[in-house]
Simulated assay, not measured.
Amino acid sequence: MSDEELDVAYNVRRKAGTELMERHLARYRAESERAVAGLPGHLGVGYDEASGERLDVWGVDGDGLRPVFIFFHGGYWFALSREESSFMARMLCEQGIATVVPDYTLAPKATLEEIVRQARAAVAWVYRHGREHGLDPDRIVVGGSSAGGHLAGMTMAGRWQERFGLPGDVVKAAMPVSGLFDIRPITRIYVNEYLRLDEERAAALSPALLPADRRCPAVFAVAENDGDGFLAQSRRFQPHWDAGDLIVVPDRDHFDVVLDLGDAESLLGRTLVDLVRAV
C-alpha cells in the first residue's frame, strides 16, 4: 500500500472527524465517571517501581476473590489514560468480575518497548498482588482498545513470562477490540512521529509475528465501520491465533465500539462476561 492508502486505512482520527472524535472521548470520561461512582475499589495503586505508573482496581467487595479483566486503554500509545477507561467496571462488578485499568507512560516520553514492558508488569502485579486487592490471580483476562488491543496482544504472546517470574499461562483469555497485531504499517503514518519505530523494531513488537507457546482462548472484536486497517488486522490475526473467534460489531465505529463493554445487553458486553466466566 502507498503511504496515502495507509493513512486512509489507519487514520481513524481523520475518518471520524475532529468533532465526532472529541465527543466520543468525552463519553469515555463521562461514562467512566458514572461507572465507578460509589464502586468499591483501590485507586492509584503503584504497579511498577521502575516507571512509577499506577493502576485502578474496581469492583471488589471483600467477599472472596473475583476474576479480573485488565483493560489497556487506546490512544495510539500517545494519548488517553486510566481516567477515561473504566466504563465497563460497574457492569462487570454486577456480574461478579473485577476490573483493573493501568496507566502507562505515553510516547514519545517512553519507547514502545517500554510501554509493552509496563503492560506486562501490570499483568505481573495482578498475579503477585491480586489476592491482597480481591483479585483472583488464576483468572486473569486481558483486553484493550486499538493501541490497547496491541498491548493485550503483547501479553498474549509467549516467551516473556519467564522474565517476570510468571507461569506461561498467566493470561487465561483475551479480548482485544480494534487491535493492532502487525504494527509495521504504523512506521509509515503520522503515529510514528511519536513512536519513532523502524520496521525491524515494529516487527519485534508485533503480536502476529511473535511465538505463542500457548494460545489462550480469545475474542477479536472490531467495528463494522472501523478503519479498513483495523478490520484487516483482526481478520488476519484471528485465524493465525487459531484459538479465538472474530466478532464484527454492526453499526459501530472505531471510537464507540469499545463503549459496548459497559453494556451487559450488548453483543460485546455479553461476550466479555461469557469469556471471563469460562476461565
Rank of each mutant, 00 (worst) to 15 (best):
R14F: 03
I140V: 13
G144C: 01
G144M: 00
F87A: 06
T105V: 15
G179H: 05
R14Y: 03
H240L: 15
A30F: 14
V170L: 01
D138W: 04
G153C: 01
R139M: 02
V60P: 07
K109M: 14
G62V: 01
G179L: 08
D3I: 12
F78H: 15
L6D: 01
A202V: 06
V141D: 00
A243K: 07
M91W: 02
G165P: 11
L231P: 12
G134I: 02
E200F: 05
E84V: 11
V123F: 04
A278L: 02
H24A: 15
S81A: 12
Y190W: 15
A119M: 11
F255G: 11
V12G: 02
L106G: 00
P207H: 08
R120Y: 07
D228H: 10
E84G: 09
V101I: 14
S2T: 15
K15T: 13
N225G: 10
V100G: 06
A35M: 02
R215A: 13
G52W: 13
A121N: 14
S32W: 06
D63T: 13
L268V: 05
S51E: 07
L55K: 02
D260T: 06
A278G: 05
G134P: 05
M1F: 09
L209Y: 12
F71L: 04
A218Y: 06
A124V: 05
A152D: 05
E83K: 11
I247H: 10
A173T: 02
R29P: 04
H42N: 14
Q95F: 02
W160F: 09
S206C: 07
E193G: 13
G158V: 06
I189Y: 08
R236S: 09
P67N: 07
Y28A: 07
H150R: 09
A218F: 08
D263H: 06
G96W: 01
S2Q: 09
A157C: 10
E114M: 13
Q233M: 04
D63P: 02
L25T: 10
R82S: 09
S178E: 08
E94N: 11
L231W: 13
D136K: 02
V248E: 11
G153M: 03
L275Y: 00
R214M: 10
L25H: 10
S145Y: 09
E19C: 09
T187V: 10
H42V: 13
Q238Y: 04
A264L: 11
G62Q: 01
A221V: 11
M91Y: 03
S51A: 06
Q233I: 03
D63R: 15
E114T: 15
V60H: 01
T18H: 09
A221C: 08
F72K: 04
G153Y: 01
D138S: 06
L246Q: 07
I115A: 09
A110G: 12
R235D: 07
L166I: 03
L205Y: 12
D245C: 09
L25K: 07
V219S: 05
D245S: 15
V177F: 10
G227M: 03
H42M: 12
Q161H: 03
L166P: 00
I183K: 05
V279G: 00
G44P: 13
I247C: 05
E22A: 15
D256E: 13
G149T: 09
E33C: 11
Y10M: 06
A157Y: 08
Q233H: 01
R196A: 15
R184P: 00
G158A: 12
P167E: 03
K109H: 14
E199S: 12
A122Y: 03
L259T: 05
V276Y: 00
Y76C: 04
Q238T: 14
